[in-house]
Amino acid sequence: GGHPVTTQMVETVQNLAPNLHPEQIRYSLENTGSVEETVERYLRGDEFSFPP
């Protein structure tokens, strides 16, 4: 991942996926670069990993 992630982006995802840890959200956003894509992954039931 190398996309810039803002606190705003993390908070937006958190509102839609409250049971995800912020670190999981941030890591996913760094890989996708997209709030929409991260939320899609969540709704699909994809696994969210923590940063290594």
Rank of each mutant, 00 (worst) to 15 (best):
P4M: 14
E30G: 06
N15M: 15
P4Q: 14
R41I: 09
P51G: 07
T12D: 12
S49Y: 13
N15P: 06
P51N: 05
P18F: 07
V13A: 05
E37G: 08
S28N: 05
P51V: 04
Y42V: 05
N19Q: 11
T38W: 02
G2R: 15
Q14I: 10
L16P: 01
D46C: 10
T38G: 00
G33Y: 06
M9N: 04
I25T: 00
T32V: 03
T6L: 07
T38L: 05
V39M: 14
M9R: 02
S34K: 04
S28E: 06
T32M: 03
G33P: 00
I25P: 01
V39N: 03
E23V: 07
N31L: 15
F50E: 03
M9K: 04
E11D: 11
P22T: 09
H21V: 08
Y27H: 10
P51Y: 09
G33T: 04
E40D: 13
F50M: 08
T12K: 14
T6N: 08
L20T: 01
P4S: 13
R26V: 08
P22G: 05
S34G: 04
N31G: 08
R26A: 08
D46I: 06
H3G: 10
G2K: 15
E23W: 09
G33N: 07
E40L: 14
D46N: 07
L20H: 01
N15Y: 13
F48C: 02
G2S: 14
T32S: 08
E23N: 09
S34Q: 02
F50C: 09
V35D: 01
R41L: 11
L43K: 10
T12I: 14
L43W: 10
L29W: 01
E40W: 10
P52C: 07
E30K: 07
A17T: 08
P52A: 09
L16D: 04
L20Y: 02
L20P: 00
N15G: 12
V35Y: 03
Q8I: 11
Q14C: 08
E11Q: 14
E40F: 13
V5Y: 12
P22A: 10
M9F: 02
P52V: 09
T32K: 01
I25S: 00
T32D: 03
S49D: 14
E11K: 10
R44Y: 05
E23T: 08
V35G: 00
T6P: 05
G1K: 08
A17F: 15
H21F: 07
P4A: 13
E30I: 09
L43P: 02
P18A: 07
L29C: 03
P52Q: 08
E47F: 13
Q24W: 03
T12M: 15
S28A: 10
P51A: 07
T32P: 01
E11F: 09
L29H: 02
E36W: 13
S49R: 12
G2H: 13
G2N: 14
P51Q: 05
E23C: 11
L20D: 02
E23K: 05
F50H: 05
Q8Y: 11
T38Y: 00
N15D: 10
N19G: 13
G1E: 12
L20F: 03
V10L: 11
F48G: 02
Y27D: 04
G1Q: 13
R26W: 12
P4R: 14
T12N: 10
F50L: 05
V10P: 02
P4Y: 14
Q24F: 01
Y27M: 06
T6C: 07
G33W: 06
F50N: 03
G45C: 05
A17W: 05
L16Y: 12
Y42E: 03
Q24P: 02
T7D: 15
G33S: 06
T32A: 03
G2P: 15
G45K: 03
R41M: 12
T7F: 11
M9G: 01
T12Q: 15
Q8G: 10
G2V: 15
S34D: 07
P52L: 09
E37H: 07
G1V: 13
N15V: 14
V39Y: 12
Y27K: 04
T7L: 15
V39I: 15
H21E: 08
T12S: 13
E23D: 15
E36R: 12
A17V: 09
F50G: 02
E11R: 07
E47T: 13
Y42H: 04
R41S: 12
F50P: 03
H3V: 11
E47I: 14
S28G: 03
P4C: 14
E23A: 14
L20I: 03
G45H: 04
A17M: 08
T7S: 14
E36D: 12
G33V: 03
R44S: 08
R26C: 07
Y27Q: 06
P52K: 06
I25R: 00
V10S: 02
I25N: 01
P22H: 09
N19D: 15
E36C: 10
P52S: 09
I25F: 00
V35L: 08
P52R: 05
S34T: 05
Q24M: 04
V5L: 06
R26M: 10
L20N: 01
E23Q: 10
G45A: 03
Q24C: 05
L16G: 03
Q14N: 07
E11H: 10
S49C: 10
T38K: 00
L43S: 07
T7Q: 15
N19C: 11
V10T: 05
N31A: 14
T6S: 11
L43T: 08
F50W: 15
G2M: 15
F50A: 03
T32I: 02
N31Q: 15
R26F: 08
V39C: 04
N19P: 05
G45V: 00
G2W: 14
Q14F: 08
P51W: 04
P51K: 05
